[in-house]
Amino acid sequence: MTDSAVLVVIDQPPYGDWQGREALDMAFSLAAFDRPVALLFRGPGVNWLRPGQDAGPLGQKTVSRNLGAATIFGVEALYADTTSLAHFGLRDMEPPAETVSPDAAFYRSFSHVVQL
């Protein structure tokens, strides 16, 4: 078993279902057990990073607050797919994420890739 990180992918927008939240729980859980973990936002999932969210009126918790704590809780890196950011008109990200163009080499740099 290599010591390289687990990559957890979020590719759905927030609030429409619980998939992203439950993916985030997996990432936080790995971090809590001191397993290296990174998050990738891809496709419509980049909307998790949009500034100015307020899910209060939906009766939900605003996800950017959880996400802002990701690195504090030990998530090693946040990545966002460059093309998807452009598709959804995202220039600013909250919290900031490293932009990548995920390809075979990118995915292979992780020990596991988890996509709910």
């Binding site: 590719d11 891809r42 496709g43 995920p102 390809d103 075979a104 080499a105 995915y107 292979r108 996509q115």
Partner: peptide, 27 residues
């Protein structure tokens, strides 16, 4: 480093295209 990709979505699902993009030598 070769990867086995398990896909259970239709070709119209974005994951299908993402998977093809992620495929490398020996996959």
């Amino acid at each position: 480093t070769a990867t086995l990709h398990l896909v259970n979505k239709t070709p119209d699902h974005s994951r299908f295209a993402e998977c093809l993009l992620a495929m490398g030598q020996g996959d």
